[in-house]
Design a protein around this nucleic acid. Sequence first.
DNA 1: CCTTAAAACCGAAACGTTTCGGTTCTTTAG
DNA 2: CTAAAGAACCGAAACGTTTCGGTTTTAAGG
Lengths: 340, 340
Amino acid sequence: MTTLKDLSRHLKLSVTQVSRALNDHDDVSQATKERVQKAAKLLNYRVNMSAKRLVTGRSGIVGLVVEQDGDVLEPQLFTQVIWGLSHAFSERGRQFILHATGAGGDVLREYESLIDSAGIDGFVITEPTLNDRRIAYLINRKVPFVVHGRVPDHTDYAFYDIDNFAVGHDLTRYLIDRGHQRIAFLNGPANRTYVEARREGYVAALTGAGLALDQTLHITGDMAATAGLVSCIRLFDKDNVSPTAIVCSNITLAEGAYAGLKALGLAVPDDVSVVAHDDLLPGHAATSFTPPLTTTMVPLSKGWPPIADLLSREIDGAPLEQVQMVESMDLIERGSVRTL
Amino acid sequence: MTTLKDLSRHLKLSVTQVSRALNDHDDVSQATKERVQKAAKLLNYRVNMSAKRLVTGRSGIVGLVVEQDGDVLEPQLFTQVIWGLSHAFSERGRQFILHATGAGGDVLREYESLIDSAGIDGFVITEPTLNDRRIAYLINRKVPFVVHGRVPDHTDYAFYDIDNFAVGHDLTRYLIDRGHQRIAFLNGPANRTYVEARREGYVAALTGAGLALDQTLHITGDMAATAGLVSCIRLFDKDNVSPTAIVCSNITLAEGAYAGLKALGLAVPDDVSVVAHDDLLPGHAATSFTPPLTTTMVPLSKGWPPIADLLSREIDGAPLEQVQMVESMDLIERGSVRTL
DNA sequence: CCTTAAAACCGAAACGTTTCGGTTCTTTAG
DNA sequence: CTAAAGAACCGAAACGTTTCGGTTTTAAGG
């Protein structure tokens, strides 16, 4: 391994100047910079990261901590997240470490040890919950992080999010505009922030149109086809109050809803209209539904590059407005809604 | 951040002794070791990895490089692998970095840059193929690695594997012992080493019993239920030569086979017997088949701790026999085989 | 009580980089 | 021609650990 010292000897320059040349500082002449670059390439010089880390205190490493109940998160989704993040950071020359904690371990302890001994520069936090302890801890320890999502009323940190309020609002409003009045909402896991935000959008659209709220029409649960099926069927338990339309928080839930409606002998959209939010997960195309599903759409995969950029900026101490981003979304009409 | 120096001051010991105490060297008295441990805990001391790395020349980081076609590998399986490895290494105080390469990128270049600039200590290689380029490259660069699997006739490196020959052999032999003579094999993707090894075991069992080989009875393909269904139905295209038993390389394939047999109006085990290898993936229990599936079993999850240990040993330069491991397996009789 | 061996300890160097606080050389202004 | 300013460079310290090559203390043997 060639070191800076080797280079400096070879170039008859001080180690200082070689270092500064390679890092493009401004008190090195252009000529020298080029000479150094050339020699570095010639001698196949590679900076020793460990040394650099020791002296700068930065590791270039970012991390994601996932808790043991990895089975709770759909494997499909987990794969997407892991893959997307890893790829985005890899492309930017950062190392992405994945830290899987044991069952029942204290997650905050894991963060602590990662920060203190592995010298991690920053974290990505996924699936934030209301009052997320991780966020509080990292703010407190002043460690950079970016949240994939947002906690309502508490947004003094870096995040990438989609407009979940609009998801709930626009889908519901779309149905209201077409004459629907009893609209059910099959939402995701109860304590997730995006689930809450979507519920608020749903409620706002209903009350904005002067429609009554019915608590029994909003159902939280896993984002899985099986959960959608069960919830959907339960919606029709007392058929005098059955909904004429269903909003699904996710396309997998919609698969369940379609199956449930079919089992009940109800047709989409003639008997019941269905709309959903589409993350564009591979293997679950809204177009391959029969009839094709009307959706709001933001590809999940769109988020990884921004997240990597936002975290890099956050690590570099950029101001708040440069480390927050809300992705816009499209509403795509297909054939799953009937105008009453 | 507490450092060794802080500790030594607090304990009125030299930095040397503190370091040696924490690393359990043998010229430190037991009493001192305990005193140091206690103080370290009290002052919340965490070793600074960067410094340790610099002086030892080791980064403590291990990596897994996954290629873009992450969708080819079942998400279910990918999740298991990533999770298991990450967890095993996390528990051992190593950082596990996941490097996802872009589409069509040169994987070997990715290894090169990871080795040279990130200072990675070693790699895990999963899903090896016959004549795997990664293995050749890493051997050539003298970078430690451990293979999850094995390449036949070329085993001068660290690996963890199960006895795939035995999987093919024992399942086939089990059927032969019960009077079956036309035995099909739904195997995995063609160029994978474990697929080949299982095929060899299958062939050996057949020829060992003096039975004829029929090329059309061995089918390679994806390890998915859909692939199993299709292959299974094709097996019965010409019914004069239909198999009386099917060996499946994987429990998901067996799900497909069960579905295919059902569709063809054939009963398990009365018309056709089925056996499979079981990796014990969550959500695919052999016991929940009807009838319950007879399998050879090695939990996939059993491998991650040994893999982490083997790689650690390999990094420490342990001799070949200490860095290779073949896991034994169980054959569990359930109700999916009929004695002819 | 002295000698020797073993046990316990310690100072200082080393790892490869960045950066602080200079110095030297060149150019420009008066 | 001199003073000042700016450009280009450099030595040495620092980061927190491990480890080499000792020294001191304790215990054992005679």
